[in-house]
Design a protein around this nucleic acid. Structure first.
Lengths: 337, 337
DNA sequence: GAGGGTCACTGGACCGGTTCAGCCGAGGGG
DNA sequence: CCCCTCGGCTGAACCGGTCCAGTGACCCTC
């Protein structure tokens, strides 16, 4: 049982393929009566456009690509990507666009994937995430001429359209809040130092600490895993000038840090306040529940997808500054004992 | 600057399109010298096959579909899906297949997506996850004639090829281990009751408890969220016949359960032993670290992808019983006080 | 040296749509 | 009444590949 084609519809309706094409695409060139008849037949025999045939005429592929280049074992760790994907998805599926996903090992492989997808006409554009400082992918996709939206600060995005949130403001809000509580020794457990948003947060952290006249505000870099988060926390809490508050760059490290503190017989929040970047069920489930920086990650993804679809449609898309992360206070922060 | 086509190559090489096609596809019909010349030219001008044109000739779409039908907010919660996807991916990208992903709201929408993908020639097959009891999707995809591999027990997969793990054995191993430690009152905090693997685990749990002559072995069903896991735990621990061990159906509920126990001033593992289904950084990070049932989820996904590619190639694929989850003991299980 | 077979390659149909030039008939204006 | 316009439709080219039938050259064989 072959898939019905417009030729089948044309035969049944007694018109030409061309007329059917006009009718199905809502274009002028057929009378309303004929259009209705054709649509009815198409519907009845369950016709679906063959995207391959459409794509062949230089039309859109109706798909966008996303290549994730964190190692697989880190991907599962954070809910970030899954939430991002579901946000992207929501926007795409509303427009009947599909999402092509690939997990790659490094940036070189990632570019290979984009080149292939773009070269094969499989995608109409792509979303770039996890920008590095001086990211080599940016000039490469610029040269390819593929529509691309970058998730991250415009400073690293070259001429590409970016969707970003004001991490600076979030860092400032957090530190000011902790200082208002009475903290003077605040530390930061950061993610991968080569990521551009890590650099931005690091800088903002240093600036705010200086502005507020705080003493040494140590930053420890990690790879986002619980193990490294725990190790960093242990190191910070063993130092002579033990911080009274730590801001973690993700939820899993914050929880690991909480465990370390409790292991060391420190009370959270009396002896140590903890803030996590990005909320998750995990943060709400532990005792005490964690004060977090909340972002609407699906919205973030949806906005990026929106911008990308605009670009693909040839509409000039403006960079978008998304909502800054908001501080949601819970039981893990309090004035230092 | 148009993308190069085989016609361009043919012109440059002074041969016909047909010859170029044979050369590029490694088919007989051209001399080795000509083939080499054509490949060199193709390489030089950066030719890539246009999959649309290929697909039009009834060839493969070189993509497989995965529609996830859990609500977005649950997807981020568990690392399961991300790990599964990265496993599927690993297998697919080795064969240059792409993964089409869509997050849908319910089974009806999911079938709509599959119908569209299949109808439009976008995918060559799909992977079905989270089988329900009497899953309506099974007969529907059977009727569509689309190659499909099911992740789940064959009993729910109809005539479809399935990849599954022996959850029965895992449940048995876990309960026997707890009983060997001296536990007699064991409870299970299960996932969604309409999922077929929940039913299988439920049944196995009941059988093993009966076999070992245990008293009432309560099962509480949840939606996999931390909140419901906490509520279920609270209920179980407040009952007159308080269990001394609880087996949770995922990591997030187990951690929530741990928090509840600690809130109720119960010592884990002295007063309550905890086992979680599926390991995650989360389980290793909490205090005490959780005893878990470990599965190699990426392998699980890779095997499913492998089977699916075989099916697509027209090779008859056999169902595969994957490794059963293995018990990894950590600090959360001990003899009851 | 005629017949047969193989090899390397050509030309063109074909996949399922889109799109454009052109045709026909009806209606309107002069 | 004729000419022009325009709506509604047809026929065919086209997108970039695949693949099949056919062709000509060459070699082998009896």
């Amino acid at each position: 049982m072959r898939r019905p084609t417009i030729a089948d519809i044309a035969r049944q309706a007694g018109v030409s393929k061309g007329a059917v094409s006009y009718a199905l695409n809502g274009q002028p060139g057929v009378s309303e009566a004929t259009r209705a008849r054709i649509l009815a037949i198409a519907n009845e025999i369950g016709w679906r456009p063959n995207i391959a045939a459409r794509a062949l005429n230089g039309a859109r592929a109706h798909a966008v690509g996303l290549a994730l280049c964190r190692p697989a074992r880190f991907l599962g760790v954070e809910p970030f990507f899954m939430e991002l994907i579901s946000g992207i998805e929501a926007e795409l599926s509303a427009r009947s666009y599909a999402l092509l996903l690939q997990v790659v090992g490094d940036h070189e492989a990632e570019m290979g994937v984009y080149r292939r997808w773009w070269g094969e006409g499989r995608v109409d554009g792509a979303i770039l995430v996890d920008l590095h400082l001086d990211d080599s992918r940016v000039p490469q996709v610029e040269e390819m001429g593929m529509p691309v939206v970058v998730l991250g600060h415009p400073s690293a995005a070259g001429s590409l359209v970016s969707v970003w949130a004001d991490d600076r403001a979030a860092v400032r809000e957090t530190v000011e809040y902790l200082v208002a509580l009475g903290h003077r020794r605040i530390a930061r457990v950061a993610g991968l130092p080569r990521l551009s948003h890590t650099a931005i947060r690091d800088r903002a952290f240093g600036e705010v600490c200086a502005d507020l006249g705080l003493d040494a505000c140590p930053i420890v870099h990690t790879d986002y895993t619980g193990e490294e988060g725990a190790r960093a926390t242990r190191r910070l809490l063993s130092s002579p000038e033990r911080p009274t508050a730590i801001v973690f760059d993700n939820d899993i490290m914050a929880v690991a840090g909480l465990s370390v503190a409790q292991e060391m017989r420190l009370d959270v929040p009396a002896d140590l306040s903890i803030v996590a970047w990005d909320d998750s069920p995990l943060c709400q489930v532990v005792r005490p529940p964690l004060t977090v920086l909340t972002r609407d990650i699906p919205a973030y993804g949806a906005h990026a997808a929106q911008r990308l679809l605009a670009l693909i449609d040839g509409v000039e898309a403006k960079p978008l500054e998304d909502e800054a992360p908001r501080l949601t206070t819970r039981g893990s922060t309090a004035p230092p004992a």
